[in-house]
């Protein structure tokens, strides 16, 4: 019981990390980005590539992987999404789905379809006991990085002019433009942030478990589940949602592995029916 909780929370950190960008893009640009999972996977593979191919130290490879993914996100926004998003929302959906396919195919061409993992020698002890639960050190490192980077994201969004501009665009696009904010640039920056954090999630995850291009969709779906639980448009919601989803999916896989997916989706439905705004979602009063 206790170990299920601990391991679930540890996983939850990465789910939250992956979901931040998904939530941000949905809230600010107003699109469900089906290519989000592809960005997570891209970040993981890019990090692995930098570390293995060029011998870059992990911390640098991770930052490179994250920023590279952010850049890819911004390019996707400028070249594709920006051109269609004023049209039918459905078209953007189809488009991001197509982008996911293209990114995945290109990733497969470049890196192959094999699963890759980045093996780290940290010099840390293998782990320690937390009560009766053995906590692997590196899991904890990943969890800490998740929380710290979440804090960085909170500061960027909450305390900087850039973050204010992003939130202003989310709240009211026209008013933001009338205040001198360049909407297109802000969306690109939003996609950059989203991609960077998605890439960071992938960069962390690739040290824990193998990653391959074909895995992108489950990341998109998981991100979706996380923000449904945590609440749309709130970064704190994504964090809490990620942790709750981590425990939920871990518990389901532990206690009833064969029907685990049914359980997680069941909880999603319950949330949609009884608490559509999620645990921490903005109430209707200040919804646009």
């Amino acid at each position: 019981m206790e170990d299920v909780l601990v391991y679930g929370l540890l996983r939850g950190g990465i789910y939250a990390l992956a979901a931040f960008g998904f939530s941000l893009v949905l809230g600010v640009i107003g699109i469900v980005n089906f290519a989000h999972g592809a960005l997570v996977v891209f970040g993981g593979l890019l990090t692995q590539y930098l570390a293995v191919k060029f011998g870059v130290p992990y911390a640098a490879a991770m930052i490179g992987g994250a920023l590279g993914t952010g850049l890819l996100g911004a390019v996707i926004q400028r070249l594709f999404v920006a051109r269609t998003f004023t049209l039918e929302p459905l078209m953007v959906l189809v488009q991001t789905f197509g982008i996911a396919t293209v990114v995945t195919e290109l990733g497969t061409l470049g890196w192959g379809s094999e699963e890759r993992m980045l093996r780290l020698k940290t010099g840390l002890p293998p782990g320690f006991m937390l009560g009766d639960t053995f906590v692997p050190s590196f899991d904890l490192v990943v969890f800490a990085v998740s929380l710290v980077s979440a804090a960085v994201l909170f500061v960027v969004l909450g305390r900087t002019e850039f973050g204010r501009a992003i939130r202003a665009c989310r709240d009211n696009r026209e008013s933001a433009q009338l205040s001198g904010i360049n909407l297109g640039r802000t969306f690109e920056k939003t996609m950059f942030l989203s991609g960077t954090w998605a890439g960071l999630a992938g960069a962390m995850f690739v040290t824990l478990s193998p990653v391959a291009p074909y895995m992108h969709f489950s990341w998109t779906v998981d991100s979706f589940l996380v923000i449904t639980i945590g609440g749309l448009g709130s970064m704190l919601g994504a964090l809490v949602g990620g942790l709750v989803f981590g425990v939920l999916s871990f518990g389901a896989s532990f206690y009833a592995p064969t029907i685990a997916p049914a359980i997680t989706f069941g909880v999603l439905l319950v949330f949609l029916v009884f608490r559509p705004q999620g645990l921490l979602g903005a109430g209707p009063a200040i919804r646009k």
Partner: peptide, 28 residues
């Protein structure tokens, strides 16, 4: 010019219905 450039050159509009940013504080 694009709307944000017009705004930067000194033409500011207060829209019908005000268009404040609801989740931002007054200061923000």
């Amino acid at each position: 010019l694009a709307p944000h450039d017009i705004a930067r050159l000194g033409v500011r509009m207060v829209s019908e219905g005000r268009g404040t940013f609801p989740t931002l504080t007054v200061e923000e």
